[in-house]
Computed example of a mutant assay.
Amino acid sequence: MTTIVQQSAVTLHFTIKLQDGSVADSTYNMGKPAKFVMGDGSLSENFEQCLLGLKVGDQKTVELQAKDAFGAPNPDNVHHMDRAKFVGDAEVEIGTVMAFSGPDGVEIPGIITEIAGDSVTVDFNHPLAGQDVTFEVEILSVE
Rank of each mutant, 00 (worst) to 15 (best):
V5G: 08
T11E: 13
L12Y: 13
G21P: 03
V23T: 15
V23Y: 01
A24T: 06
A24H: 08
A24E: 07
D25W: 11
D25C: 06
Y28N: 10
M30V: 13
A34P: 01
F36R: 09
M38V: 15
M38S: 09
G39H: 03
E45C: 06
N46M: 12
F47N: 05
F47D: 04
Q49P: 01
C50S: 14
L51M: 13
L51I: 05
L52E: 05
G53E: 06
L54Y: 10
V62A: 06
E63T: 15
L64Q: 10
Q65V: 10
A66I: 05
A66N: 05
A66D: 03
A66G: 04
K67F: 08
P73V: 05
D76G: 04
V78P: 00
V78F: 00
H80I: 08
M81S: 04
M81T: 04
D82N: 10
A84M: 08
F86A: 00
G95W: 00
G102S: 10
P103T: 15
P103S: 15
D104V: 06
G105V: 07
I111W: 00
D118K: 09
S119N: 07
V120C: 00
D123Y: 00
A129K: 07
Q131K: 14
F135Y: 15
F135D: 06
F135M: 14
E136V: 15
V142I: 04
